[in-house]
């Protein structure tokens, strides 16, 4: 089975994330860069499906040069090879542009399954799986908390507010995963060493037959007009429980007409 896992390098949630003052794009120097959290689960699912059905796991990532770190991490978990799409002209691409570029890469690699995290911790749009399924004309198997496939048919549990739906389709397909799906493995020492020798193909926009006018800030259908740091919340009232904490909380709720 030809499995492609999409990986995104994002600013660490635990560091201070900022936008650049000049063009309102992500300030990649301000925060530590890590692999998007849900992508670990996508890689794990890809590896598990490979263990069951054979074939190869290819990592695909679009991002600046230093996204190579995220790709190495994915390879150290056990993926076979990687494609890194990197081009200065891609900076500031919105979801629509990103999905077009990735769809183009997937056209080159081919795939039985494309697996990705259901959203990234920076943009948090949660739309990429849907956009890719639309562009590639394949079933959208998104928000999966469970995936089963026999190599031609695929069934997932699609997580919902009320529980889950079961969804069926035929391969090839796009799958996005939620963290409930599995427990990602840690890279082993052997895996880390092996990852250094695994092939990583680097592609520019030109390699994909696209030019700079089709990517980045210039081509994006959305534009940030302005941004501001959120003002800190006004300090609230903090009381220490001296046997009447619950009663005081109730008084507060009553004063705000919640009870």
């Amino acid at each position: 089975m030809n499995i492609v896992v999409l990986v995104k390098q994002v600013p660490d949630t635990w560091s201070e994330r900022r936008l650049r003052a000049d063009d309102s794009t992500l300030d990649r120097d301000a925060a530590d860069a890590v692999i998007n959290e849900l992508d670990d689960y996508a890689i794990e699912e890809g590896l598990r499906l490979q263990e069951a059905h054979g074939g190869e796991v290819t990592i695909v990532s679009m991002g600046p040069q230093k996204a190579a770190d995220a790709i190495r991490k994915a390879l150290s978990m056990g993926a076979d090879k990687a494609v890194h799409v990197t081009d200065e002209a891609l900076r500031g691409s919105d979801g629509l542009v990103t999905s077009a570029v990735l769809a183009s890469v997937l056209g080159r690699t081919g795939f039985d399954l494309v697996i990705l995290g259901s959203e990234s911790t920076d943009a948090r749009m949660g739309t990429l799986a849907a956009m890719l399924a639309e562009r590639l004309g394949v079933p959208q198997m998104s928000f999966a908390s469970k995936v089963e496939t026999d190599g031609s048919k695929i069934t997932i549990h699609r997580q919902a507010d009320y529980g889950y739906d079961t969804v069926e389709g035929a391969l090839p397909a796009v799958v996005s995963v939620v963290e409930k799906i599995n427990e990602p493995r840690y890279p082993s020492f052997k895996g880390i060493m092996a990852a250094k020798k695994k092939p990583v193909e680097t592609l520019s926009l030109a390699d994909l037959g696209m030019d700079a006018s089709q990517a980045g800030l210039a081509a994006s259908a959305t534009q940030v007009v302005s941004f501001a740091n959120r003002p800190p919340r006004a300090a609230g009232t903090i009381v220490t429980d001296e046997g009447d904490g619950g009663a005081k909380a109730a008084e507060f709720l009553a004063s705000r007409k919640f009870i």
Binding site: T237, I238, V239, T240, G243, G245, G246, A254, I259
Partner: peptide, 28 residues
């Protein structure tokens, strides 16, 4: 989390919450 609180109680939740439930019940 207290930095975000409009109202916060520092205390044992197993004491504070039952009392809060009881007070809400009384008011209802």
């Amino acid at each position: 989390i207290f930095e975000l609180a409009d109202f916060g109680v520092v205390g044992d939740l197993f004491k504070v919450v039952p009392q809060l439930i009881e007070e809400i019940g009384k008011r209802a």
